[in-house]
Simulated scan of single mutants.
Amino acid sequence: MPPSLRKCPWSPPASTSQWMFPPQKYNADYDLSARQGADTLAFMSLLEEKLLPVLIHTFWVDAKNYVEVTRKWYAEAMPFPLNFFLPGRMQRQYVERLQLLCGEHRPEEEEELEKELYQEARECLTLLSQRLGSQKFFFGDAPASLDAFVFSYLALLQQAKLPSGKLQAHLRGLHNLCAYCTHILSLYFPWEGAEVPPPRQTPANPETEEEPYRRRNQILSVLAGLAAMAGYALLSGIVSIHRAPPARAPRTRALGMAEEVEEE
């Protein structure tokens, strides 16, 4: 182990890539004691076990939240035609991940499992609130890796406008956690909320260079989208092509010859 890393009072496992920091004291946990380092790993494990499944359920499984919030977010951010089918594929992946975290259950057990998951998530948030207390950060006045980890879980839950927010209501009742997220947002993300980052300066007359190619790019993007949709429809079986049997030759000539024979 390099001498610079030996100065750290506690050393996370070297096999975990996220803990590999350069030796210029860039480690956010450099000044933590061994006990604080153990608390960091314990709280991270607690959040992944108790809070992550409920966040997946809130944003990807709950029907109202998925349709009105999550799917809308991703559909607006993705280009056409990916915004038609990628959100649904992502939802299936998150549902499979939730099944791996909680195990597969019968349909009649899902409601009881949901109640249990939300109860454990509320207890986890309450424990975080008690651990934070009146401090600015979990280990004093300076942020550590635990603060970044907790903020990544709580900020989205606090800021999203969810039509079905059972866990969100509990979080908003823990005022020190809400103030904690608001403090980090104002400190490190000042453009979130009222303040907006300054717009990029554009050239005085950008149309002189982009106008000849704009119409071509629009036409190509429309053609590519139509081709992708047609290919997807054919591969998925929504549309199928059947070859019609060859049309029979008209029998007018045969009928005319038969009439001539009868006349003779």
Rank of each mutant, 00 (worst) to 15 (best):
A194F: 08
Y30N: 06
G193H: 03
D39H: 14
C181L: 02
S15D: 15
S164F: 10
P212I: 00
L5C: 08
A38K: 03
A258H: 03
D39Y: 11
E110F: 06
A148I: 04
M20Y: 09
E110S: 09
L146E: 07
E120W: 07
R122W: 01
H170R: 15
P22I: 08
S4H: 11
K7W: 04
P13M: 03
Y30A: 11
Q158K: 13
Y94F: 14
T70G: 04
Q168V: 09
H183D: 13
G140C: 07
S221I: 07
L5Y: 13
V150S: 03
Q93R: 13
L185R: 08
E68R: 14
W73Y: 08
E109F: 02
P198T: 04
L100D: 11
C102K: 08
S4I: 05
S186A: 15
R97A: 10
F137Y: 15
T16V: 12
S236D: 01
E112N: 10
P197H: 00
G237I: 06
P203R: 06
F139D: 02
A228I: 01
V69R: 01
V61M: 06
E192S: 11
N217Y: 10
S145D: 06
P143M: 04
T182W: 00
Q24E: 13
L100A: 13
S15Y: 09
T58L: 02
L162T: 00
E49P: 04
M78C: 07
Y66T: 03
A254K: 12
Q130W: 07
A121V: 05
M20V: 13
A63D: 13
L187R: 14
V69E: 01
S186C: 09
W10R: 04
E104L: 12
L223F: 14
Q159P: 04
P53F: 06
L127E: 09
P163R: 11
Q24L: 11
Y66C: 10
A233C: 11
G237K: 11
G103Q: 02
S11L: 15
F189D: 05
Q24C: 13
C124H: 00
E195S: 15
Q218V: 13
S221P: 04
N27G: 09
T70C: 12
P245V: 01
P53T: 03
A247H: 08
R253W: 06
R71P: 02
P245Q: 00
T182S: 13
E76M: 12
V69C: 05
G37R: 01
L127S: 11
A194W: 05
V61P: 02
K161A: 15
V261I: 13
V54A: 15
P197M: 03
T126V: 02
Y180N: 01
S33C: 08
Q18N: 09
L101W: 03
W10L: 06
D147L: 03
L5G: 08
Y180H: 00
R122G: 12
L162I: 01
Q135L: 08
P107L: 04
A204F: 12
T182R: 12
K115P: 04
I184E: 07
D29Y: 01
T202Y: 10
R92P: 05
E114I: 09
L101N: 01
R200T: 02
L51V: 10
D62C: 14
P12C: 09
